[in-house]
Design a binder for these strands. Sequence first.
DNA 1: AAAACATATTGACAAAATTTGATATGAGGA
DNA 2: TCCTCATATCAAATTTTGTCAATATGTTTT
Lengths: 122, 122
Amino acid sequence: MSSIYEERARVFKAFCEENRLRIIELLQEGDQCACVLIAKMGIKQSALSYHMKILVDSGVVESNIVGKWTHYHISEAGSQYAQELLRTMTQQHVTPAAECSCACEKPDTQSIRNGVKIHGNA
Amino acid sequence: MSSIYEERARVFKAFCEENRLRIIELLQEGDQCACVLIAKMGIKQSALSYHMKILVDSGVVESNIVGKWTHYHISEAGSQYAQELLRTMTQQHVTPAAECSCACEKPDTQSIRNGVKIHGNA
DNA sequence: AAAACATATTGACAAAATTTGATATGAGGA
DNA sequence: TCCTCATATCAAATTTTGTCAATATGTTTT
């Protein structure tokens, strides 16, 4: 059993490593087979295989085996799922930006607010 | 100097670790100060500080210091930037899905195409 | 100024991710 | 069937991340 956080992390693991970002960029040009990706990336065959597994597990890339070759391409559905997930994960659940109602403020709310805006960078 | 891939990876590092996903979820409820996050997360102070640094570096979270407290909130601009980045990164640069024009197909294209669809899962 | 407090930083360690070389698997061609 | 080729998997080495305890920094309170 995997937590919801584990599942979400799996999606974004695709985008948090440089080699995988380069692979995704290559796939933007269309379907590519493993042998071409190895050549373009300049990495070992087993390393590519490792990264492709992570990419496919994320849902962002799909593979299809044609004879002895494996072809990879960006999954339209997987990409849109990731985009939607990112949107909902960063969406505020409250109006603009509620102030922190934390305990640390309670002891002496006065001094904290003394002419100092809670939000904003100044 | 950091590569474009390094910069992009930095953004999505925010979303590829479970603790950070939980922190982001907590921030969806609005501004939170570090002391509250420590309590809710059940992690050590230095661990929280470590994760918050990564989150702030990603641009997805902003911090503001109010006296001795540090407050964190989701950055509207940072989130939208991440969403936009994700969208452009997964966008096909070619019509639907071009077939691989790789060298490995060239030797004997015939046999590969023999009644087998290149794309599609069957 | 001294004490108390919140957070950041550091160094040591543990755990997870990545790379590499070797080998296994599975498919096509001889 | 045997050989060759493409990719996957494995085990070991290496690198990167994440955690913890201790300490530093900077702020408020007294």
